[in-house]
Design a protein around this nucleic acid. Structure first.
Lengths: 211, 211, 211, 211
DNA sequence: CATGAATGAGTTTTCATTCAT
DNA sequence: TATGAATGAAAACTCATTCAT
């Protein structure tokens, strides 16, 4: 057994190189699949962009579909990293909801590839293993958001057992805005103020009217 | 002079049969492409379901992509038929916006195939002619909705020249809800009351708080 | 029975119209098949150019291949009409051979479509009936030319039973010149004097050297 | 340092196998396309004959048309290899011309597939890239032959700037003889003496009559 | 007869995946 | 483990031919 296998320090170069290849594949894959379409983007394009041989792709990922599932996981994990902190500081329900909505919207504004990928990933057949994984990963994200929003549901008079639907509405609005907006050039050109208002839309739309 | 050549009456049977085949192709195509995915759905599946030969498909539509563009047009025309009446009766801005949102949401709830199709159609390459048509058709729909919402923008303090973004938000929320919700089984199972609240979300979210 | 069925006079208009359509199909077919290639040229292109419906084509010709066979016959009959008169006036063998060569060359110079058609028609499968007909028609033309050249063979010391080969050489040179020359732009641009010399080539090449 | 990395010696077996497959594809392709017709011959027939999978064909050649262009290049290169030596030894013009004609004629007699291929290749659409290549390759061959014949043109009183036409006449006669002769069974059955006389035809046909 | 809509066999080409090196 | 050549299932699309009107 090599020395210090658990110390995070400098990894054995073999392992480091392998991980770097994996990272490059995922990065370039996300970029290309978003730009050219998940189906239209060929595996060889991705490996060429990542600077590795075509066969290497299948040493790292079981199939193209599994690769997409991996990307979905990556994107949602990345998104969750921005959303989760909002649950740490105690806030009133409306602010929490507004924060979650705004973070989602800003995330997809900065990363339109993520919106493109998620929208297309849903089209993968449900009867393949990676397809199921994508659905489950999406559900997990909605569950996470729903659990964060749980404290806000009561005051907003939203049924506790339908938090997922609220999370789904937030995801749909934010992700769809850049997916459907892409052919129109909307999204990148929309003023930040507008997008922020849209981010708070859910919160204010559900808030009780004081009038 | 032949009798009443302009009366629509019984069409020549040739023409009628042809139109019926076209209609069946579009109906079955929408259903199958939504269920199995636009790309995964083979042309032959559609023609088999429509009860015509494979070649007939290409007598009616120049390509599979052109067929999808036709479907998008059909769906958006259908949707517009439900939305347009809302602009006829004078209402306050908030009611108008709520109506438009609710109609969109209900439309996609009743026709999840429509949500599925629109979401997938955006993935078609932008550099093909049918791909461009899809983008333009989508823009036309947003323009229609934006023009209907125009009277509501002022009171809601939404910039007049960004009506499209508001329409885009409504479309994204309603269409995306059933697209992203599909793998989770959400949508058909969500209580109608929830969906109605989501339909009014945009209206209430933008309305000035009276407090 | 209608009156005067055998008098050549004004034909019944039905018949006349039918023959006109046939003629237009053959004319346009020859033009288009020469320009775009026999295989690449679709039946519908021909009927469109001839101003008749697609189905009419198959009322006049059993198949596309049979149509090509008909064109070959037409072209070779036309060519024979120019060649045959040379056999009527008594001439010395060399002059006869030169005349036949020159007529062939001039024919294909004026009608490059004919050269194109004949060259391509040889590619039709030999195991179809029209394919066999094409071969036989070509053989018949060579036999005609050979029989005309027969009196010239003796003086030129060319074996009497290989007249076909001589005819074949004349056809190859004249037809091939415009077929292989087409991609190069040769043929139409070649000075008439050169072509005339080539037309006499066979005659002079076989003539006994007086030196 | 590895031993002699530059010595051509035994190639890496990977590369050698690949080249062998390419060679087999070209050989079998030439044979089959000549026999059954360029268009009628399916790619799968060629790969089956060459003992490789269907996909391999497209790893080696961009398209069926590109494959034909490659074959044309191969055939003309092969033909040029026989013709070129004639230009090295100084001869009088007539002998040179006779040599070139005879070599062409014998080449196509021994390789009727070559005549078949060249004749059919000219039918490929001019507006595709491989189609253009074929035309250019043919022009290059005629230029080569024309340049070889250049010294002979003066004595034969043939204009220096129309050497191409002379080369074209030689090619047409020799190649066309076996192309048009194929359906008739001429060519392989023609006595060698006749063919030799035809090979010298151009030379003697242009030579000044000493009488 | 003329027409043109319907038909489906046939063909090229693509591309994810495998596997020998 | 990386590579890229080989593979063949799959799918869109073509187009000659048929036939009901």
């Amino acid at each position: 057994m090599p020395a210090e296998p658990s110390r995070p320090g400098p990894k054995p170069p073999r392992q480091a190189k392998r991980e770097a290849a994996s990272r490059r594949l995922l990065e370039e894959g996300l970029r290309l699949m978003a730009r050219r379409g998940v189906q239209a983007c060929r595996v060889e394009e991705i490996t060429a962009a990542a600077g590795v041989g075509k066969g290497t792709f299948f040493n790292h990922f079981a199939s193209k579909e599994a690769f997409v599932a991996h990307l979905v996981d990556m994107v949602l994990t990345d998104l969750a990293r921005r959303v989760r902190p909002l649950g740490l500081a105690p806030q009133d329900g409306e602010s929490l909801l507004a924060g979650v909505g705004t973070v989602h919207l800003r995330y997809f504004q900065l990363r339109p590839e993520a919106a493109s990928l998620l929208s297309q990933a849903c089209a993968l057949e449900r009867d393949s293993e990676p397809g199921r994984q994508i659905g489950q990963r999406l559900a997990a994200h909605l569950d996470l958001v729903a659990s964060m929003l749980a404290p806000a549901l009561g005051p907003l008079d939203w049924p506790q057992d339908h938090g997922r639907e609220l999370a789904l509405a937030i995801l749909s609005l934010s992700c769809g805005f850049f997916w459907f907006g892409r052919p129109l050039g909307l999204g990148p050109e929309s003023p930040a103020a507008l997008l922020d208002r849209l981010g708070r839309l859910t919160a204010q739309g559900l808030a009780p009217r004081s009038g």
